[in-house]
Design a protein around this nucleic acid. Structure first.
Length: 509
RNA sequence: GGCGGCGUAGCUCAGCGGUAGAGCAGGGGAAUCAUAAUCCCUUGGUCGGUGGUUCAAAUCCGCCCGCCGCUACCA
């Protein structure tokens, strides 16, 4: 069972912010879940380093483009490392393997008459690296013109190679029809469909106005348009055009995870490029939402851009990872606020989960000499509690396959709340005076439930859940979904209880 | 302008034809194993408005209002 999934490659015109962290962590949670479930996962991330904006940013920074890219790309890689994002490969579009692959893809498209030489003129925004129709351009009072995105535009006329996107309209519609899960969430799929139905025009795929890009083969002066370059990373990282490479059998990708702003490129242009090249298209593309900060749109000018690393320094990596998917339905936009984050940490991590583990493990330490008790005869209450924990496996699989990360967490939390109710009902602290055998049996049920919960949560919070699994004595070889079928060894000596999620107390100002 | 989504308890949302639900917040109680954590009970909504279909409508249909997304055009 193979699973190939990707993050977008991040554009290196600025430092990483919480939006990048969100995509990367979401992809990581999904990748880790698939690994936990026994899949042979290949998880790709990377940086997108070409284009006029980068060329300009480098010039502004007084650096050579490549040096500039090296510096920013390193920041993205560092961010992923610090966020425990477990990529298997990190591709940069300035790497020879990518440049070579993109040129091969270009040649193939030309050979198949999918690209032709024409010319393009129109309002061009350097910042967006995109052309806009005259209708979309607004004339400002000072005589300058801007795109709907607010980016300044200039009139540009240049010879261009065009991709015959218009030819692929019907094939795309058919593909959407035959693959209802091709794009998620469903609302976004509808938007993509209506965009395609609205008619596709050929797409400009080269530029002559700047140099920082992959040269069009045999056409001096032309550089390959950013999206052909960028999207191709998903196959060049697998060795394209070498279809005998060891990684190539992983194509097509099982999942491209992207932000909603670049969904169209992935859900329309990319499949069209692939079809035109005679290659299979990805199985699924999911577009997630955006974060606002304390109710406001994040922007450099407002100065409210959240640096994920400072968040991690303050709250810890797992609390941040948890918050991002617990707070907001994945696919919707969300709002970050410090209060909400602290509230989730204290209410759900410390009180509900951390305290459940702590109270259970402490009772075992004190009353069972720190040895994991054996199962006793199961009462109906025990059966129901254990059944709820076991049911997590199927229910999370289904939800993770829909990228419903928030629903997955809610399912786990139902089990955690049920476990807190169970321990109160059974009151092992009272049983210790009346029926020590029953007390031990109850504590074993709790340990098993905590084991299930911690296992299922480990893709979300790898470090904390590893510590929690230590607390209930789960051997490393059993830390997987398959491993849950094997009972914990009898007589396991548990380590001294140690809190996993301390309450977060704000420092006095 | 077209297509689509949303509007349900103070907050975030689930329900999508059969007498209004969850979490958080608020109130009361229990317990004291535990990170003053937990558990139980509870206050609270004319389900945006309005017509209609139906024995029965948050739930289906029409219209209106308000947000939002995608897209187009006039100019």
């Amino acid at each position: 069972m193979r699973f190939y999934m990707t993050t977008p490659i991040f554009y290196v015109n600025g430092d990483p912010h919480i939006g990048h962290a969100y995509t990367a962590i979401a992809a990581d949670v999904l990748a880790r879940f698939k690994r936990l479930d026994g899949y042979d996962v290949h998880f790709l991330s990377g940086t997108d380093e070409h284009g006029q904006k980068v060329e300009k940013a480098a010039r502004d920074a007084g650096m050579a483009p490549q040096d500039f890219c090296d510096a920013i790309s390193a920041k993205f890689r560092d961010m992923e490392v610090r966020l425990d994002v477990s990529t298997d490969d990190f591709i940069r579009t300035t790497e020879p393997r990518h440049v070579h692959g993109v040129q091969a893809l270009w040649r193939r498209l030309r050979e198949r008459d999918q690209i032709y030489l024409g010319h393009y003129e129109g309002w061009y925004a350097v910042r967006d690296e995109d052309f806009y129709s005259a209708d979309d351009v607004t004339l400002l009072a000072d005589g300058s013109r801007v795109a709907p995105t607010g980016a300044p535009v200039e009139w540009v006329r240049e010879p261009n190679f065009l991709f015959r996107l218009s030819r692929w309209q019907d094939a795309l519609l058919q593909h959407y029809e035959e693959n209802p899960d091709f794009v998620g969430p469903p609302a976004k799929r509808n938007e993509m469909l209506s965009f395609i139905r609205g008619g596709l025009t050929d797409l400009s795929v080269s530029r002559t106005s700047f140099k920082w890009g992959i040269p069009v083969p045999d056409e001096p002066g032309h550089v390959i348009y950013v999206w052909v370059d960028a999207l191709a990373n998903y196959i060049t990282a697998l060795g394209y055009p070498d279809l005998c490479s060891s990684l190539w059998p992983r194509w097509p990708a099982d999942l491209h995870l992207v932000g909603k702003d670049i969904l169209r490129f992935h859900a329309v242009y990319w499949p069209a490029f692939l079809m035109a090249a005679g290659l299979p298209v990805p199985k699924r593309i999911f577009g997630h939402g955006w974060w606002t900060v304390e109710g406001e749109k994040m922007s450099k000018s407002v100065g409210n851009v959240i640096d994920p690393l400072s968040l991690v320094d303050r709250f810890g990596v797992d609390a941040v990872r948890f918050f991002l998917f617990r707070e907001v339905p994945f696919g919707n936009d969300g709002d970050y606020s410090e209060r909400a984050l602290i509230s989730r940490m204290n209410t759900e991590l410390a009180n509900d989960l951390g305290n459940l583990c702590q109270r259970s493990v402490s009772l075992i330490a004190r009353n069972c000499a720190g040895v994991l008790p054996d199962r006793g005869p199961l009462t109906q209450d025990d059966e129901e509690m254990l059944g709820l924990a076991d049911g997590l496996i199927g229910s999370l699989r289904e939800r993770m396959d829909r990228q419903a990360l928030h629903e997955a967490l809610e399912e786990v939390w139902k089990a955690i709340r049920a476990a807190n109710a169970y321990i109160d009902r059974q009151a092992p602290w009272a049983l210790k005076k009346t029926d020590r055998a029953r007390m031990a049996a109850v504590l074993r049920v709790l340990a098993d439930v905590i084991r299930s919960v911690a296992t299922m949560l480990s893709p979300f919070m790898p470090q904390s859940m590893a510590r929690m699994l230590d607390q209930v004595g789960v051997p490393h070889g059993l830390r997987s979904i398959a491993g849950l079928q094997t009972p914990l060894p009898e007589g396991t000596l548990l380590p001294a209880p140690q809190g996993v999620f301390p309450r977060f107390v704000e420092e006095a100002a």
